[in-house]
């Protein structure tokens, strides 16, 4: 039930972020200082920010960027993690232990730490965001894929296929992947939630996309200096991100067997 509510909410957010920029008459990046900080009303549904940009349009465009980046990063890490995890599961032996060790090391750098370290040395830009989040992002997915593969690998039909001389690639594609898709999808949803937090956190810290491109974290960080005088430009993207986070978390929770 909650999972469905989350999906509906997520669909709403995606629709808002996707459609608003197409339908809105306003340019999300064009400042118009004469219309700065207008309150919500008929022309600007959520008002304008400190530079007179329509807050609704801007939040939607920023949301599109946030979601796309989170999806891109999660897509890459999931693909990478699945292949590495499944390969290690099939090969067993030393690659098995190597994966476990990589996971232990990754566990030693919690949260944003590795991303911060990489963002601190790479030149800023969209590439840096990807490069900061991918190298440590694949581990949780690999672990799940690994465990699931081991279970599948021990089953009769994989043993049979192996005995018939099937190539590892064939094994991976035809017998393993279909069976580990479920757990991988679960961990991918959880990863999506985590990545969304990470991407926007990097932007919030000023280590994400350079202006005028912005995401929710960047919008919040831009508006924070004026938080005391006018909180709206910070609160609107914050709420948007909170609602999205809630939606994804609901979906994650419903997939979680615990």
């Amino acid at each position: 039930m909650r999972g469905r509510a989350g999906l509906v909410l997520l669909a709403l957010v995606v629709a808002c972020c996707g459609l608003t920029p197409l339908l809105s008459p306003y340019d999300p990046h064009l400042p118009d200082p004469a219309r700065a900080l207008l309150p919500p009303g008929g022309r600007h549904w959520l008002g304008t920010d400190q530079l007179g940009r329509d807050l609704l349009t801007r939040t939607a465009v920023a949301g599109r960027t946030s979601l796309l980046f989170a999806l891109a990063v999660t897509g890459i890490t999931t693909a990478l993690g699945t292949v590495l995890g499944a390969a290690a599961g099939l090969a067993a032996g030393p690659s098995d232990r190597l994966l476990r060790f990589a996971a232990t090391v990754a566990l030693a750098l919690p949260g944003l730490t590795p991303a911060l370290a990489l963002a601190g040395v790479l030149p800023p830009g969209p590439g840096a965001v990807l490069a900061a989040l991918v190298p440590f992002g694949w581990v949780s997915c690999a672990l799940v894929a690994h465990t699931a593969t081991r279970r599948v690998a021990a089953s009769g039909y994989v043993l049979a296929a192996r005995a018939m001389g099937a190539s590892p690639l064939y094994l991976l594609r035809r017998t393993v992947l279909p069976h580990i898709a479920g757990p991988v999808l679960t961990v991918a949803t959880a990863d999506l939630a985590r990545t969304l937090v990470a991407v926007t956190s990097l932007s919030f810290l000023g280590l994400g996309l350079p202006p005028p491109e912005t995401d929710w974290g960047g919008m919040v960080s831009e508006a924070v200096p004026l938080l005391v005088a006018s909180p709206r430009p910070a609160v609107v993207p914050a709420l948007a991100l909170a609602v999205t986070g809630l939606a994804v978390a609901l979906v994650v929770d419903s997939r979680d067997p615990a």
Partner: peptide
């Protein structure tokens, strides 16, 4: 619980600041 798990801490922080520190003027931001 689920909701809080999905929302970045700084967003919770912004909302707390807006309500408690700016709105109620109760605590330093």
């Amino acid at each position: 619980t689920v909701a809080v798990a999905g929302v970045p801490p700084y967003i919770v922080g912004i909302l707390l600041i807006s309500v408690v520190a700016v709105g109620l003027r109760a605590l330093p931001t």
